[in-house]
Nucleic acid binder design. Structure first.
Lengths: 185, 185
DNA sequence: CGCAATTCAATTGCGCACAACTGAATGGTG
DNA sequence: CACCATTCAGTTGTGCGCAATTGAATTGCG
């Protein structure tokens, strides 16, 4: 194929273009707070975060292929292995996921025969997610995953701990920032 | 609604369930390498990463709403603002994104009038992405974004730098791990 | 009790991420 | 020159993430 399909492009004129790829000097630690540096630094923070997150995704994709799980599905299984049967709400709280994400995911886990779902008798609104025998059995097969992942990081455990601490602080700060922003609507 | 729609659940029996939510003692820094601790630590690393990444997403969603951009679209615009017109390939290299992600994204940016796309005359396979006047103009309006984001993190710049460094090392290690795993297929 | 507000899961719609594939253009080799 | 492998963008299909809505069950209040 290789043809520009739809769309209408007529706005392109010959105005001044940004300098094409200037050699960028390393930050002389004098101006760590100058605007230009802030722009770049911030970009790289969230970008690095994004990249690392997706890199993890790649490793997990490999490690979980045998189990037929995606990473989010694996997280749900971890929660269930740890805590036993749980209502959807609780799973969502643990993983910071809402029903819009969990409902179809759980349906896939159910289709794979790993969990079952049933309305709670006490509260008909709530749905309890239970591990099936197959779901329980998978726990053993999944045992190797974390160690192999840890090996893939090739970082000392202390660094990982430090990293986690920083990340959690970051997440907390970002969350409150969003809440604050939402508050003054 | 609230009804369990399709699916077939019959596997649920009454086998032993995992202990329901035991109080978990803090890691006595003696056994930082015991299996059980590794399992939990690793889980929290990638989980924290994921959470932080999504928290960033939330902040960006707020900050970019005025511009009508999503975060990945914003990244593409950043790249174009920095380097000027680029072929799709180069953008993908910068952002670690493939054509499967970029093609529809760029189509949306074109529909929004921010970029135009045209086949390169030298190599008809390549498509050059150009900023339109509107795309260039948006650069000014986007100027505030990074500083506001930096404020939202409420972390000292040095911590962010340290974080970025750790993340980049991590990404590198994970990437090579995936490559190595893929190599012995 | 009766009615409004809340809670919970599910659904819809949109956008991103990625694997797998298509199809055209290019480049290298015999 | 002919042929084949490679490169590049695009498409398809699957799954996640999130906002917004729906609809039923529950709770709270008068």
């Amino acid at each position: 194929m290789a043809k520009l399909p739809e769309t209408a492009s007529e706005t392109a004129t010959d105005v001044a273009r940004p300098e094409p790829d200037v050699a960028r000097p390393e930050p002389d630690d004098a101006d760590l707070l100058r605007d230009e540096h802030l722009l770049r630094l911030d970009q790289q923070i969230c970008f690095s975060l994004n990249a690392a997150s997706r890199a993890f995704g790649g490793v997990y994709r490999v490690l979980l292929k045998d189990l037929g799980l995606t990473y989010p599905q694996y997280l749900v299984m971890l929660v269930l292995w740890e805590h036993g049967d749980l209502p959807v709400k609780r799973i969502g709280e643990r993983l910071r996921l809402d029903s819009g994400t969990l409902s179809p995911l759980l349906k896939r886990l159910e289709a794979a025969g790993l969990v079952s779902r049933e309305r709670s008798p006490e509260d008909e609104r709530s749905v309890t997610v239970r591990l099936t025998d197959a779901g329980l059995a998978m726990r053993d097969r999944a045992g190797q995953v974390p160690r192999r992942l840890l090996a893939a990081t090739s970082l000392p455990v202390e660094d990982l701990a430090a990293l986690r601490s920083l990340l959690d602080r970051l997440t907390g700060a970002l969350d409150t920032a969003v809440l604050a922003a939402g508050a003054d609507d």
